[in-house]
Design a protein around this nucleic acid. Structure first.
Lengths: 268, 268
DNA sequence: CCTACTAAG
DNA sequence: CTTATTAGG
């Protein structure tokens, strides 16, 4: 059995002040993918950086306090790689992968954009470079007998069911037609991945994974599903159960994103 | 009777979040001199900017979020003037004066320095320009039949009794020999002012008016007396009572400085 | 609204 | 340690 959680922590130091460690202590996951760590390892207290019982690897951004991804695993990874080969994003704290027995697991924090601004151009450059990497990764992993699981904040809601107000957001970054089409390509046979949580829950709205801190988005459940488990079909077929931990209210809420946990059956 | 309070609020917006307004509502002062407002008037909610029953005038710094002095008076001032004529400091949010019946009242926030740095040079330029202004102000006010009261954060402890650790601070900005000598000149006959609170309490340590937020300065009473009522002798002679409101503990403490209140008897 | 940064105190 | 700023989300 393999249980993997993905969560954008929106600043690991802030999350640690608000309840991240008790949450982690109660986790039954074998691996946790973190995004928006927003800290260097030496800015983190030891018990946050590498909690007892976990192996931790970090890929911080060159810009202090920005982005940053990490992987926590109960077993030490066989190999760890930072970045996906595109020079612009090698030190951007957005991609980290590790080889675990039978699975290459990645933590991804795709750039957020803003329509009509250079931020959107950067997001689209990332997407353009990342898609061929995903294809290559699938082939490489298959040759090594591994499945692939890319967990993280993809910053795109795929379909109308993936956000509360899809009509109002057709021109918002995160639900632009070109972004949705790109995610469709990731999930098409040529690239060859599957949206694990949607596969388990094909007919429901959401489950949303992010609610803006602005306004009353969380209380009104005005959310977006932008955090995904994106897996090769062989692994996706083994998904038994998915859970999005929408915290009930503020004291328990230590990020604007909710942890997304999937349990995968062992390979036969 | 004239009761005047001086207090460095260390950010009026933060102070308002922590209890400034209830404190003001309980005040029996006729005038309150504020320093380190650190906001423009349009950044303040109405009830903070001009609380009911008060006339408020502000002199913000040109640099957003820095310095800024204000005067609250129960009666509308006869005249209000910003700055003291030195171009470098006209828009620095450090000096504001108002004519009240029989008294010119000023709110002063003298720059803080750091020994051996350009900040100290700036502080000393301010001091050099302000001393002749004080002399001129006294003469001008006398000719108009007014006393003068300069309240505020002078950022200088005058004597050994005015700070807890005077020996350790002989090379610290705020207790440098040249700063102490400058304050002595303000209080000498040629300039002609009096230190009202020291006049009422000649033989005690302090009363301190500021405790650093760093370390346990407040709990240990490691304070400095740097907030003063500096008055012309005729007004100083009318001082009946001085109080420094050292808040007992954190929930009641809405600034790192304590309000300094003096009640002056009516002119005969 | 929230988390970082940096400057200032 | 605390207040602001700014950029980013």
């Amino acid at each position: 059995m393999l249980t993997v959680t993905s969560v954008n922590v929106n600043g690991l130091r802030a999350a640690a002040r608000k309840g991240y460690l008790p949450w982690l202590a109660g986790s039954a996951a074998d691996a946790v993918c973190l995004q928006e760590v927003r800290a260097e390892e030496d800015q983190l207290p030891d018990e946050v950086r590498a909690p007892a019982g976990w192996h931790a690897v970090y890929a911080p951004a060159a810009a202090r306090g920005r982005a940053g991804v990490a992987l926590l695993t109960r077993q030490e990874p066989e190999a760890v790689r930072v970045g996906f080969g595109e020079p612009e994003f090698e030190s951007s704290g957005r991609y980290l992968e590790a080889d675990l027995p039978g699975v290459t697991l990645a933590s991804l924090y795709l750039p957020s954009g803003q329509a009509g601004t250079p931020k959107q151009d950067e997001k689209e450059r990332f997407m353009a470079a990342f898609l061929p990497y995903l294809t290559a990764l699938r082939h490489r992993a298959a040759a090594a007998g591994r499945e692939v699981l890319i967990c993280g904040d993809w910053n795109i809601a795929h379909q109308e069911a993936d956000l509360r107000n899809w009509r109002a957001n057709r021109t918002s970054s995160g639900f632009l037609p070109e972004e949705r089409a790109w995610l469709t390509r990731v999930l098409a046979p040529a690239c060859g991945y599957a949206d694990v949580v949607r596969g388990l829950h094909p007919d429901q709205d959401g489950p949303y994974t992010w609610w803006s801190y602005r306004g009353r988005a969380f209380d009104n459940d005005t959310g977006w599903r932008i955090d995904y488990h994106i897996a090769t079909p062989g692994l996706a077929a083994r998904a038994l159960k998915a859970e999005v931990e929408r915290a009930p209210s503020h004291p328990e809420r230590w990020s604007d994103h909710a942890p997304v946990t999937v349990t995968y059956a062992p390979a036969i």
